[in-house]
Design a protein around this nucleic acid. Structure first.
Lengths: 191, 191
DNA sequence: GTCTATATATGGATAGAC
DNA sequence: GTCTATCCATATATAGAC
């Protein structure tokens, strides 16, 4: 891996662990093993490097979500796969955590990938839920857009609960609680 | 309001807006109008002052949640009141946002109020849901603890969606999506 | 209690040699 | 492409006068 690549990967990690405000150029240089001069040769400065790292984090999140959404099984199966996907619950979401970062939100360039990620995510999930409803698998009264927003929110919030409690169990609990609510309620159906 | 009080209130605001890592003693002094010497007279340093501010944020959150939970109406009404309570969705949760702050999570004293707030919140909400289930108002199959975790997570995640999108509408959408899922499904009941 | 002076380290970057 | 030197502002205090 060349220096430029190492700088991006290191910045991805540090943004995930400490956010943008909490990540200094010096910390990036030390962890990546790149010198001061190298960093400023490859990137114009902290925002420029951060943009590369954020974009990559966003792309990867999208790719992994797509894998779950396009997986096998019913709509419920695929939504379940997405919510239960292997996650490092205590580390939080590398994209979602940046919404708390004042300097990221204040910079339109840095902010754009975050905004696009969540709008793509809810829209895609809404499409999937609409399909499940059309197939008769899900409650006909279910609002795909609002439910998708609720499910994406549950994932983001589940990270918060897990971090607050210091255990990944809370992530699983919140997600399972949500899944139980959308799963077909067999005991209530008329048969 | 005396100087000490102004320091705490100003720190509350800044922690909410910029987090712990993003808040400097100098910024606190300038916004509160207190001098360097005053701040270090009243508090031992940034962590000490932050602890006072975080504790107060946590106490206030708890108080407001209690008001909604103890309000009038059915369990569903009270949960709805809690989720829809007047909130500045774009500012986020003053307590939840601190879970993203590495220096807060690394300090057991600063972290404790966050942890206690969320454990109290989910436990209290779980109690309320259990009561609704016992009263026959909610689905008997509903798991109070997991559902409570899911609902608290929805609130935290709804802030993330709202901030990512730049509009409070997303908060309302996520919360409404969740409420629709727990509300009694009349069209499915056998009458 | 509040003010000013002072101190060390870090943040974030530029300049120019190699 | 990488390294070292240098730069100014800020972060986070402590000391001591008033």
């Amino acid at each position: 891996m060349d220096t430029r690549e190492r700088l991006i990967e290191t910045t991805r990690e540090l943004l995930w662990e400490r956010g943008y405000v909490g990540t200094s150029p010096k910390a990036i240089q030390q962890r990546s093993g790149a010198g001061q001069g190298s960093m400023y040769h490859h990137f114009h400065g902290k925002p420029d490097l951060a943009l590369a790292a954020i974009t990559r984090n966003a792309d990867e999140l999208r790719e992994r979500a797509r894998t779950a959404f396009d997986g096998p099984g019913t709509v419920t199966d695929r939504v379940t796969a997405y919510l239960r996907r292997e996650r490092d619950a205590l580390k939080g979401c590398p994209v979602g955590r940046l919404t708390q970062d004042p300097d990221v939100m204040a910079d339109p360039d840095l902010r754009r990938p975050i905004e696009e990620t969540f709008s793509w995510l809810t829209a895609t999930l809404a499409g999937l839920l609409a399909q499940g409803r059309a197939d008769g698998e899900l409650d006909p009264a279910l609002d795909p857009q609002a439910t998708a927003a609720a499910l994406v929110a549950v994932v983001q919030g589940a990270y918060v609960l897990a971090r607050a409690a210091g255990t990944a169990d809370l992530y699983a609990q919140a997600v399972d609680g949500a899944l139980a609510l959308i799963r077909p309620h067999r005991q209530k159906e008329n048969h």
